[in-house]
Design a protein around this nucleic acid. Structure first.
Length: 321
DNA sequence: AATAGCTTCAACCGCGCAGCA
DNA sequence: CTGCTGCGCGGTTGAAGCTAT
């Protein structure tokens, strides 16, 4: 928190000193009532028209992080934590994208939560290796390391997943975003990746149901690191801590090849009309079976493209009609 | 009770990007 | 093309609150 600056507007004709620091209740009232009456416009206009000695940037931040009526207050639920961890493993420090998938939460809030709480847990986890893992062995099939206090049994994982589904029904039909707090491991042990190749395998056409077509068509698969490497809990933690690097590197790695293979499969099954898909992935009409063995132009793809149509919550774009 | 150390989180800063003249 | 302006994002700061001693 910062000390509220008491210096008000100067007496100059053109130079009004902008306030910094904490917002007073009066300023909050002004901004809130202005936003409710006029909706979001140019932020510098908002600041001016609302009679605030604040820069537009400051008004925007205050509105987004504190005043917005759809904000959820209070601590993060275990389900939200679960989702944050999962999304962070997919997106890295793209807090705004993570926030867009958590209704009522802001990027700042999530960022703070991650830096203060989850990062600490990850460090603790890495400093106290699980007895169920070894430096050379495979992760246990009965339990996985987790950030909620140690090991999570398969049953507990299912319960957590169910909680997530209850809280975020939009994800209920999505086996990717909803189920796995530790995608690094599942990417190796799950049904969707071969353990010996970079190829997306074992998926039946029915897997891509139309109900979540657009979701899947753009949602990156869980990160698949070097598919021939055994992943331990320690590796998972280290990779979580280095996630930004992983995500960046993934753009030029098997990770993206997996995504693309998945996407290519899906786009073929769903026969959608995404021109980018058609041109760059489909190769202008390559059959489904060919996707798995084609070389793709990876440089033209990135997470943003893959994620852009993933559902977000309209409440985060609050605007008065 | 005092206070030192730690944690939390609201707010700021700087950068990159888009739109426009 | 260049410069300006506004917006949005991620990283960082620092005061308030909390906890341990």
């Amino acid at each position: 928190m910062r000390k509220p600056e008491t210096t008000g507007a100067s007496s100059g004709m053109t130079t009004t000193k902008l306030r910094k620091g904490l917002w007073s209740p009066e300023e909050d009232d002004k901004l809130m009532s202005y936003m409710l009456n006029n909706g979001q416009g140019c932020w510098s206009d908002v600041a001016r028209n609302a009679g605030l000695q604040r820069c537009g940037k400051s008004c925007r931040l205050r509105w987004i992080n504190y005043l917005r009526p759809d904000l959820k207050r209070g601590a993060f639920s275990p389900q939200e934590e679960h989702l944050i961890i999962h999304l962070h493993s997919l997106l890295g420090n793209r807090w705004s994208q993570i926030a867009a998938r958590l209704p009522g939460r802001t990027d700042n809030e999530i960022k703070n939560f991650w830096n203060s709480t989850i990062k600490k847990r990850l460090k603790n986890l890495s400093s106290t290796p699980s007895p169920n893992t070894s430096s050379t062995g495979s992760p246990s099939t009965d339990s996985k390391p987790n950030l909620f206090g140690g090991l999570l049994s398969t049953q507990d994982q299912q319960q957590q997943s169910q909680g997530l589904m209850d809280e975020f029904p939009i994800y209920a039909s999505d086996p990717i975003i909803g189920l796995d707090p530790f995608p690094f491991i599942s990417a190796h042990s799950g049904p969707f990746f071969s353990t010996t190749t970079s190829t997306f395998t074992g998926v039946e056409p029915s897997f891509f149901h139309e109900d979540h077509e657009s979701f899947f068509s753009n949602l990156p698969l869980l990160q698949s690191v070097n598919n021939t490497t055994t992943v331990t809990a320690t590796t998972v933690v280290e990779r979580s801590l280095k996630n930004e690097t992983i995500v960046k590197e993934a753009n030029h790695s098997n990770y993206l090849i997996n995504n693309i293979n998945c996407l290519a499969n899906h786009n073929n099954f769903s026969n959608n009309n995404n021109p980018k898909t058609d041109n760059n992935i489909n190769g202008g009409g390559v059959g489904a079976n060919n996707f798995l063995h084609e070389e793709f132009s990876i440089g033209e793809w990135d997470l943003d493209d893959l994620m852009k149509d993933v559902p977000s919550f309209p409440c985060l774009n609050f605007q008065v009609q």
